[in-house]
């Protein structure tokens, strides 16, 4: 699915604070209401804990904290986006915390601009492109890169076993 650049691809849009982000739908497994998480000791701040997803232990990452923003406050619209992450060849299920989930949209590659070099708060490596939609930009995240790096070792370690069983 990585090479569907020619065709219009489908994305799931969501909001972190006032910005709209999007991620490729193919990586998304489902969206859950955020109820409560089980805190796991000796884990980084952005890992809010784990949830029980139909018997599987799924770590929940606070994207805003991951992106250096403030901690996500729980509202009725707070959702957990269950995604499949490919980390160093392993597929891991991770829950990403979002302020709200918007919709599933189709965007033509023509409306997607390459990520800016400067001018964003983010490390642009996370961003695969900037989609234009209704005169606004949707920041399209490369979810694999978001969760890549040694910082997610713990996440990986936490998710490794179920991943193995699930795989």
């Amino acid at each position: 699915m990585d090479d569907n650049t020619v065709e219009a691809a489908q994305y799931l849009t969501f909001k972190l604070e006032d910005e709209v982000y999007a991620t490729d739908i193919s990586r998304v497994r489902e969206v859950l209401e955020y109820s409560r998480v089980t805190k796991v000791p000796r884990t980084p701040d952005y890992m809010r804990g784990v949830i029980n997803l139909r018997g599987r232990v799924v770590p929940v990452i606070d994207l805003k904290l991951r992106f250096g923003m403030s901690r996500t406050e729980q509202t009725v619209n707070t959702c957990v986006i269950i995604v499949e992450v490919n980390l160093e060849g392993e597929s891991i299920i991770i829950g990403a915390l979002a302020d709200s989930v918007q919709e599933v949209i189709e965007m033509d590659p023509s409306v997607i601009e390459p990520p800016p070099r400067i001018g964003t708060k983010l490390n642009t490596d996370f961003i695969s492109g900037m989609g234009k939609r209704d005169e606004r930009f949707v920041i399209i995240l490369d979810i694999n890169k978001v969760f890549s790096g040694e910082r997610l070792d713990m996440v990986k370690a936490t998710a490794a076993e179920p991943d193995m069983t699930g795989a």
Binding site: Q10, L12, I25, S26, V28, R29, E30, V31, E33, C79, V101, E103, V104
Partner: peptide
């Protein structure tokens, strides 16, 4: 809404 989203996600998948 959430159900519809998930349905959309399923459909996309």
């Amino acid at each position: 809404n959430l159900l519809a989203l998930n349905a959309a996600i399923e459909a996309a998948r």
